[in-house]
């Protein structure tokens, strides 16, 4: 019966438009953004990202509620500190979702199907990275927007200062998204087995932050303040905080940051190196997989 159905339809040729590279990369980006949030996939794929997003934004709402109820503007959290206070949530998000983008298609050998089409490895990898950065930017920036809008509703004093701090915090959020996304994707692509990937990414973020905090506490106890500051270069959240403090004029959130404008430039260069290195690692790994 099924065979007769096939014959009735007949094969139709396609002579419509075939769009160019820009369309392919945009489609791939959208596909990856949907994959991070589990859209178009079974319900269980949506649980983790949406739950973590809710956990991430909840403190912002509670804080705004507190400001409105107590009428005390100083209760409003600093915008630039939010991602650092909630770094555990950000770390778990990147640990659970980076493998979705970085190792799922490697594990199931899907990559050669892309490279046998008119899409090259570099745009392929950049679309994945951009999708991860977008997801992390949503995670970090939405609560900051909630805080700012809440502050406006509560009519906090010095609105122009708040606006400036808010906009600079958004720049900070973008930097968090780039650095955390880069490191998370690079670690996930090197650990293709999902369980290991999740554990490895969590370990990189949380262990590095914990070790740096320990070193900073010991150094400060021994009044070695330059060591305390410089330790910040070795944990991703601290690294971005150095840029926020030294280049964007934010207040310090980490235990210690190194002195001087030049330390901010150095931290920014390290961020750029991390992003560049991660893209290179992703490129090499996916290119190899596409040819195997």
């Amino acid at each position: 019966m099924s065979t007769s159905t096939i014959h009735d339809i007949g094969y139709r040729r396609y002579d419509g438009p075939r769009l160019g590279r820009g369309y392919l990369v945009r489609s791939l980006y959208v596909h990856n953004v949907r994959a991070v949030w589990g859209l178009g996939r079974p319900a269980r794929a949506k649980v983790m990202p949406f739950l973590l997003a809710a956990v991430m934004v909840a403190p912002a709402f509670m804080d705004v509620g507190a400001v409105l109820l107590t009428d005390r503007a100083e209760v409003l959290m600093r915008y630039s500190a939010y991602a650092i206070y909630l770094q555990v949530v950000v770390s778990i998000f990147v640990a659970s979702q980076a493998p979705v983008l970085a190792s799922r298609e490697l594990r199931f050998h899907v990559v050669p199907l892309y490279f046998s089409r008119p899409i090259a490895p570099l745009p392929f990898v950049l679309a994945k990275f951009a999708a991860m950065v977008t997801a992390l930017l949503t995670m970090t920036a939405v609560p900051v927007v909630v805080l700012y809008v809440g502050g406006l509703i509560a009519k906090v004093p010095h609105p122009l200062t708040h606006l400036r701090e808010f906009l600079l915090a958004l720049v900070g959020c973008a930097l968090f998204a780039l650095v955390i996304g880069a490191l998370g994707m690079a670690v996930a692509v090197l650990t293709p087995r999902r369980g290991f990937g999740v554990a490895a990414v969590i370990a990189v973020f949380l262990l590095s932050s914990a070790v740096v905090l320990l070193v900073q506490n010991i150094a400060e106890f021994r009044t070695n303040f330059s060591l305390a500051g410089n330790a910040g270069y070795f944990a991703p959240f601290n690294l971005v905080d150095i840029v926020q403090v030294r280049l964007l004029g934010a207040e310090r959130t980490a235990e210690a940051v190194p002195d001087g404008f030049i330390s901010g430039v150095l931290a920014l260069l390290l961020c750029a190196a991390l992003v560049g290195g991660a893209v290179a690692v992703l490129y090499r790994r996916f290119r190899k997989a596409g040819l195997s």
């Binding site: 075939r18 199931f108 899907v110 050669p112 892309y114």
Partner: peptide, 29 residues
Amino acid sequence: GFMPEYDCLPPDVSATEFVVHMARMCGLP
């Protein structure tokens, strides 16, 4: 078009979703 020898399909998406995506990866609107 290319059909590889080995298993190359993601298990968690439907055939429709996957084939539509692969069509877009060839530039089809």
